[in-house]
Design a protein around this nucleic acid. Sequence first.
DNA 1: TCGTCCATCTTACTCAGAGTAGGTTACCCC
DNA 2: GGGGTAACCTACTCTGAGTAAGATGGACGA
Lengths: 199, 199
Amino acid sequence: MTTAKRKRMPRADRMRQMIEVAEQVFSARGYAAASMDEIAELVGVSKPMLYEYFNSKEGLLLACIRESRAVLREVTEQATVGAADAEDALRRGLLAFFVFIRERRQAWSLLRHEMALIGTPAADEVEETRRQQTDLIAALMSGYFDSGDDLRAEAAAEFVVGACERLAIWCERHDEVSPETATGYAMDVLWSGLAQRAR
Amino acid sequence: MTTAKRKRMPRADRMRQMIEVAEQVFSARGYAAASMDEIAELVGVSKPMLYEYFNSKEGLLLACIRESRAVLREVTEQATVGAADAEDALRRGLLAFFVFIRERRQAWSLLRHEMALIGTPAADEVEETRRQQTDLIAALMSGYFDSGDDLRAEAAAEFVVGACERLAIWCERHDEVSPETATGYAMDVLWSGLAQRAR
DNA sequence: TCGTCCATCTTACTCAGAGTAGGTTACCCC
DNA sequence: GGGGTAACCTACTCTGAGTAAGATGGACGA
């Protein structure tokens, strides 16, 4: 019997299971309010096992974040391959992102609730997620755009990431806004600028 | 003698002093790593006093956040009065913001490190800060722009706030970027859009 | 000058939850 | 079947948030 209430479980499987449970608990209760005892109990294992596999509470969160980040990267990167031009690439990437945050709310929740940890190793880890996204965008832009100075390009990429992050959070409060609509809003400002709408 | 090591102190003064110290400790160590014992000691008072005045660790953080928010609001609102047009208003507001985050690093640090508290009362408090800023921008825009649908306008405001927040964090890593330059970068994307730079 | 009242302040605790020391048991493989 | 080891557990320590109950300085009236 491979299923049922099998006790002993190989390391890799157990880790996956722990990460899955932890992702749920962290995103439900928030990092601070979540307790290692509770996670351990839900997994059906004792607390020291969590520490055996992840070293610390923060380490466990880190594993969850890495997991989510990998998915996000995969999704957005895949979305932009084969884009016709800059506008198309940007639109595809944005759409993939907004779909991701809708379909994987818990994962997204972790990626944004990070900050609990400023000054700790996990902060770097989350910052790394943003860097991943800004790098992707910067790469896109260097491919499609005339390069002004590098600093300006970097700033623009940061700008896009921040804007989308915020818009995504706004979307959580607005179920009626579909990923497609959100993408439209984003493209509207990003691509054409606010000037076109001035009176 | 009003100064020196006067012990007993009126409630209002003591509160101000506590907030000041707490702002330093929170932004230096991060919320999680900061201890109430340490703050109490630095203030030169015992821990129960902090609880007497602020009820909880989170309450103390909250007081700090409110303080910072008030300053931010004051600064940005003042900056936009008497602007000639939409572009001018936006530029003035942005500049005021980037100056604020440079000159009051600790306050800004608190405003962004909030998230430690998702799911708790303080989260609402911080979200309120953003709402304050988005409202300000939305108001600006409704004054200067043709109103499309409201949802779109709201999304645009969120977008601007998120983008600037992110750019501000980026600025922390780039001392060589002055508030003026940052404002330029932001205006460049926001106002004109990315289209103009496409190859 | 001296009591008296109360806001300010303190000592000395409880308690939850992160993290750990050291021993136990199921499973794989010869 | 019997090592050997990876998976696992019980039973602790320790830090830091939060609190109960009492001490004390000083303003103010008599």
